[in-house]
Design a protein around this nucleic acid. Structure first.
Lengths: 332, 332
DNA sequence: TTGTACGCGTTATCAC
DNA sequence: GTGATAACGCGTACAA
């Protein structure tokens, strides 16, 4: 692999001259031509590693998500990448496999690879490993998770009002027994989404039957099993709210298997308008999160911090969710 | 940020000694204790960039896929990551946005970041940019794409027999007008999948009606529109084969919208057993690709090449596909 | 404008 | 074993 020295020798100039050429500084035409010829001839490529070592920047943002195959995460990542690429940054995406240990490991790897910033979708509310990252002067932005005991920028959906609006709609449409299929209690978004469910009940003086509250996890299997359990109750719900995309998928699976008619026998409200929604029959009513906006916002925040703009640090951005009424929910 | 020199000074030893300690070489107990104390005290972290510059390896594999949100791709990536991580390699995943120009750009970035190998899911059959990567001694493995005019390892599904088996099943079950919704003709997998369709027709002396062959693209919209066009024909098909996951999704959408009864009025065979298959009603009959195996195989190949094992170079691995019979296809 | 010398943090190679 | 020192490839002063 040809180095900058080889190019300099070939062109008969000094290495500094080549370096300046590479950095877009104008040189004497004569030299420029020679340098260009040498680069072409030797098929020279700049060695990014050496450059990074020198300037102590990599123009790379590390991103950690719990699962590469989770379309909610990847949709956000895609939007981040678009924004960051625009500003000359690349992304280094890691998968924590939903494990805290792995997450720590990946963060460590990213820090050692000298990324210029870290955007993380934590898989738990233990983010003690992030403080070490920040000690190295690394900006950190979290997604989908409010973090205590650690100052950093955060981008969140307005989870509380998301479920509040959905439950409110159901109550307004005469539903009184509303099931909720939620993530585990210790997860941040689960807590908020449950909170919205509770608030709507409070505000309309409706009592919550604890049997209608499921929180075994955000996975497809959890959604599937929870829905079956709900419908096996002596007094089953007339409507069910699934609190993320995969519990929605699991719920639909269970509904199909049980042969339940939607919306005649059960109203279903899902989460995130991703692929499935319009494909299943009847089309799903869903709560939507602004995924592109989440990604873009996180990208913009990290870019600000990298550029030393800390005037609004730390910022917590709450993004509004939507509600798309389709056929799977109706008046009871 | 503390450097190895600081540690050496703090411990009162030479930098080489610290380096040897970091690389797991045993030192005199006395020195080991001093070095460990110094590392702890200074919160020293090894500088990966500097190390890479020296040893000329990054322990990182670059991966380029057409779309972060494409679950077929990410499932494969996940399986690659699992294997590579096991061997101490990280992955650097890039999204080509389905554009050749972007793909070139991303490959260039990866080469400059000095990844140790490149696994690529090309978005077209123009892979001229890969030869440059290989000139730098970089092993290249392609996924999902047979490549001409360029020697490299390739991991492919057995596309021809995949569609052959599906069409054969349909023919054996008395279907004579079989529609196919395929990717664009210039795409490699499309060509092969069409070939399987054709061969099955040949082998059973069935003539192909050109009107039944759609090839407007692998996207959801293409699938949606193609299915509608097929069903609008004077003599519509009795069965339709969608040739990737997204055309399958689009087809299901169209079927729901048109109110077509499956399998009574139309048999549908989809591609890839991903999420959707068991959620829609009736459950989808699908051709499956061994995604985990594709990822694992590609990872193993690149690891071999990195370790200098070229005894079977270049290798083309053809992996067998499966066929899951569910409710969406039946005897005509 | 151009050329030179040095620094970045680590590893490898010598002598000791 | 250990210590000193020369690489690795690039950027950047500073002097010419």
């Amino acid at each position: 692999m040809a180095t900058i020295k080889d190019v300099a020798k070939e062109a008969g100039v000094a290495t500094g001259t080549v370096s300046r050429y590479l950095n877009g500084i104008e040189l004497k035409k004569e030299n420029r031509v020679k340098v260009e010829a040498a680069i072409e001839k030797l098929n020279f490529k700049i060695n990014t590693i050496a450059r990074c070592l020198k300037i102590n920047r990599t123009n790379t943002i590390g991103i950690v998500i719990p699962d590469f195959t989770d379309i909610y995460s990847t949709t956000i990542v895609r939007s981040m990448e678009q924004k960051l690429y625009e500003y000359g940054y690349n992304i280094f995406v890691c998968d924590s496999w939903g494990s805290l240990e792995m997450e720590r490991d990946k963060v460590e790897i990213l820090v050692q690879k000298l990324v210029d910033g870290l955007i993380i979708y934590p898989c738990s509310d233990d983010i003690s490993h992030l403080s070490r990252a920040r000690e190295n002067g690394l900006p950190v932005v979290t997604i989908d998770m409010a973090v205590k005991d650690f100052e950093c920028d955060q981008v969140l959906s307005d989870n509380i009002n998301a479920t509040y609006k959905a439950v409110e709609w159901l109550i307004a449409n005469n539903h009184k027994r509303i099931g909720i299929i939620n993530g585990q209690v210790h997860r941040f978004t689960s807590g908020e989404r449950l909170r919205g469910y509770q608030r709507a009940h409070e505000d309309y003086s409706l009592k919550i039957d604890r049997l209608l509250v499921k929180n075994s996890g955000y996975g497809e299997t959890s959604g599937y099993e929870s829905l079956i359990e709900l419908m096996k109750l002596k007094d089953p719900p007339t409507a069910v709210l699934a609190c993320n995309y995969y519990t929605t998928v699991g719920s639909v699976k269970a509904i199909n298997q049980l042969g339940i008619k939607v919306p005649e026998e059960l109203s279903l409200i899902g989460f995130d308008d991703l692929g499935l929604s319009e494909v299943v029959k009847p089309a799903l009513t869903v709560i939507t999160q602004p995924m592109e906006e989440i990604g873009r916002t996180a990208a913009e925040l990290i870019l600000s911090r990298i550029n030393g703009d800390y005037h609004d640090f730390p910022t917590v951005v709450r993004l509004k969710t939507g509600f798309i009424l389709r056929e799977s929910a109706r008046r009871y």
